[in-house]
Amino acid sequence: MDVFMKGLSKAKEGVVAAAEKTKQGVAEAAGKTKEGVLYVGSKTKEGVVHGVATVAEKTKEQVTNVGGAVVTGVTAVAQKTVEGAGSIAAATGFVKKDQLGKNEEGAPQEGILEDMPVDPDNEAYEMPSEEGYQDYEPEA
Rank of each mutant, 00 (worst) to 15 (best):
A18K: 04
P108D: 09
Y136F: 11
G84E: 06
K80E: 04
V74M: 14
V55G: 02
P138D: 11
K60I: 12
G132P: 03
E104R: 11
A30R: 05
V70Y: 06
G86L: 11
Q134P: 11
F4L: 05
E137P: 08
S42P: 00
E131N: 10
G84S: 09
L38A: 09
D98N: 12
Y133I: 13
G67M: 01
A19F: 15
K96M: 15
A53W: 04
E35V: 10
E46G: 04
N65C: 13
E28C: 03
M127W: 13
F94H: 06
A76W: 02
G36H: 15
K97R: 07
A90Y: 12
G31Y: 09
G73K: 11
A27E: 01
A78W: 10
N65H: 08
V118W: 12
K34F: 11
V15G: 03
G73S: 05
D135I: 11
K23P: 01
E13D: 01
A27W: 11
E83R: 08
E137K: 03
N122T: 02
Q62L: 06
T81Y: 03
V82D: 04
L113D: 12
K58R: 00
K23V: 09
A29R: 04
A85V: 14
P120G: 06
G41T: 10
V15Q: 00
P138K: 09
K97P: 13
A91G: 13
G67A: 08
V48Y: 03
A11H: 01
E61S: 10
N65L: 08
A76L: 10
V40N: 01
A76C: 15
T64D: 05
S9G: 04
T81M: 11
N103H: 14
K21N: 03
A29I: 13
G106N: 11
V82I: 14
V77Q: 02
N122M: 05
A30E: 00
A89K: 08
E46A: 10
L8A: 02
E130K: 05
V16G: 05
A90I: 04
K32F: 14
A69Q: 14
A76M: 02
P117F: 06
S87W: 01
N103G: 12
L38I: 05
I88M: 09
V63K: 00
K21Y: 13
A90V: 12
V48K: 01
V37L: 06
G132A: 11
V52A: 10
E110R: 05
S87Y: 10
V95T: 08
A27V: 12
A69M: 14
G86E: 15
M1W: 00
S9F: 15
L100I: 12
V15Y: 14
K102T: 10
K6T: 03
L100Q: 07
T44P: 01
F94K: 00
S129L: 14
G41W: 03
E57Q: 14
T64R: 08
E83A: 12
K43W: 10
E137F: 04
T64F: 03
Q99K: 08
I112L: 13
V71M: 04
E20G: 04
N65I: 08
E57G: 09
E139F: 09
K60A: 09
T92M: 10
K6I: 11
F4H: 00
G73Q: 13
V55A: 11
K10Q: 07
D115E: 10
G106F: 04
G25C: 15
G86Y: 05
E126A: 05
N103S: 06
T81C: 15
M1A: 02
Y133A: 07
E131L: 05
N65S: 01
V82C: 13
G93I: 09
F94E: 07
A140H: 05
E130Y: 13
V16Q: 12
F4C: 03
A30S: 01
E35K: 06
Y125H: 12
S87D: 08
P128Q: 06
S9K: 15
K58P: 01
E57W: 06
A89G: 11
A140I: 06
T72I: 15
K10H: 15
V15D: 00
L38Y: 08
V70N: 02
D135K: 11
G14E: 05
A124V: 14
E35W: 13
P108W: 05
V3K: 03
Q134W: 10
V55C: 07
V3R: 15
K43P: 00
V66Q: 03
G31C: 11
K80G: 07
T59P: 01
S9Y: 03
A140C: 14
Q79G: 10
F4I: 03
L38Q: 04
S87R: 09
G47D: 04
V95D: 10
